[in-house]
Every structure is written in C-alpha cells, then in structure tokens.
Design a protein around this nucleic acid. Structure first.
Lengths: 74, 74
DNA sequence: TCAAATATAGGCAAATTTGCTTACAAATAA
DNA sequence: TTATTTGTAAGCAAATTTGCCTATATTTGA
C-alpha cells in the first residue's frame, strides 16, 4: 500500500505545536493531561514521527486555547 | 482502546473541503486524481466519516490551491 | 426520458495511529 | 553533585485509516 505521509509537513506542524505550547509555558506532561492523551503521543506529534489526525489537532488546539488552524499556520 | 474522534469537528472540516472544492468548480473525481488518492477517500473525508490525517489535509489543500489552514477554518 | 456524470456505500487487507507501559536520556534546580 | 522535572524511545495490542475494488444511488444535461 502507498500510504500518504508528508514528512516535511508533519514535522512543521509538530514544531508549530511545540512553539505554541512553549509560548503558553506548558509542559508536554501538562498538555497531555489536559488533552487526556498519552505524553508519548504528544512527544510523537511534536517530533513529527506520526501523521496525526484532525481530532488530535483540534483536541490539542482547544487545550492550548488557540484555533485549530493556528496549528497549521506553518 | 479509547480512540479520539471528534465527530463534530471532522464533519465541519469535511464540509469546508467540499465548500472549497465546489468554489473551485472541481469534481471529487478530479480532486482525487490531482491528489492521487481514491475518490472514495475524498467522499469519506467530505462526509466526515473518517478522521483523516495531516498529510491528507495538506495534500488536498495543495491541490485545491489553498493554504492547509484554510481547510481548518471552520 | 435516457444517458452520462457525479457522489455514496461497503468490504477486505495492509499500513498506520493510539493507548498503555516501561525504560532511559537530557535538562533544570537545589 | 544529586534529585527532580521534562522529554525521548520503543514494543505490543487494538482501533482506525487508506488503497483497491465493485456496486449502487443521485444529479445533471441532452
């Protein structure tokens, strides 16, 4: 199968998530708790090792108190 | 497992994708061809039945000639 | 009306994400 | 230095997405 994975893009989004999180002075652990997801998942997303979903982006955005589109502003 | 799926959000994004596609006067078949994905996949995304990935959103955005964040402008 | 174009639906296998866990590395603070 | 916090890494099972396919419904145009 030819699964679509845009390495460049998912890495950019990961960096953007991290950037916003740090701007808000929140640890990965805190964000993970707020989002009710595993910290390892936050880590994977920020490092761009996974091609995460719309729902995860929305979940993270909500808990970072930004609009989901702001996390795609890369 | 407690897989995160935000029905409301993915349906909104689906509607937004459709809206942009129709604004550009493109059929699902055309968009699918441009994106090199299955038409059934475009259909599933627009109807909000799947919680698609960042890469898919970027792929679709690129081929609709909009910024990926515009597809999350819901 | 009829044909053609467009969109929806669903099944199956393969690939991936996610939750859960444990372990370790790296940075920070005392 | 030592302890604490923070972040990275990896493996496994379950759930989901995706590609591929076929079939059907719905809309549009002649």
């Amino acid at each position: 199968m030819r699964y679509l994975r845009d390495e460049k893009f998912i890495k950019l989004v990961g960096k953007r998530v991290r950037q916003v999180r740090l701007m808000k002075n929140i640890s990965q652990a805190q964000l993970a708790a707020d989002c009710d997801v595993e910290i390892s998942q936050i880590s994977r997303i920020e490092r761009g090792v996974i091609n995460t979903s719309l729902s995860q982006i929305n979940n993270i955005a909500r808990n970072l108190k930004v609009h989901p589109k702001d996390l795609l502003d890369v």
